[in-house]
Amino acid sequence: MKSTTLDISARSLQINNLHATLENGTEILKGVSLEIPTGEIHAIMGPNGSGKSTLSKVIAGHESYVPTAGEILLDGVDISEMSIDERSRAGIFLAFQYPNEVPGVSNANFIRAALQARLPKGEEIDAVAYYKSLYEKMDLLEMDRKFTGRAVNEGFSGGEKKRNEILQMMMLSPKYCILDETDSGLDIDALKIVAKGVNAMRSADRGMLLITHYQRLLDYIKPDQVHVMAEGRIVKSGGPELALELEEHGYDFLKEPALA
């Protein structure tokens, strides 16, 4: 992909030697390093319990984890000291594996509140433009208009919740998207729709990180890089072919060096 001559060295989400523990001191991330430049999609694969989801939450700023070392640089700026909402406004978006329900808050009002949070004090969202943009994206994600008035994720099916995450992502237009197991619980049709949304977000100005257990998602969203995570570290990185290799051989190869 061609880039402009601007300084692109800083246009990335860079994670350097990131360590994080649970509040009880158990170390989950044991030195993760990773760089996602804008314009690229990276995938992290790995067995259950390898720390993939924890990594996504630590990047987003979840307070159940204590970062003990390392840094998270967003376009060269360390965001480690920022609160969750500051990170979001700075351009990080986490699509949840299990999106929460927010009873009594309509989807339209929720997304509007998120957009409003990005405006200077006193400035208001233009309602007409907002709904126009919302409907366009809902149409792309094949979401019925009734979802604007329904409470966030309440009574949504698994697939509807994931689509709703992608809708929020499209509306907030973040610089870096982290999708945590977005493919889990989706049937093939829903997976295709979600992939369509993600692919529509692909841009030279945006980096994405897909966290997934299965190769299946990567049939629909082509990654530039694939990383394998195990026991809190990135143990292997490569091109898209790495995902196919994993699909074929499973994660057992990770154990081989120890056995040898």
Partner: peptide
């Protein structure tokens, strides 16, 4: 905290 986390992760202050 999990409910708050979801909204905060969308940029809404606590």
């Amino acid at each position: 905290d999990e409910e708050i986390f979801y909204l905060q992760a969308r940029g809404i202050d606590p």
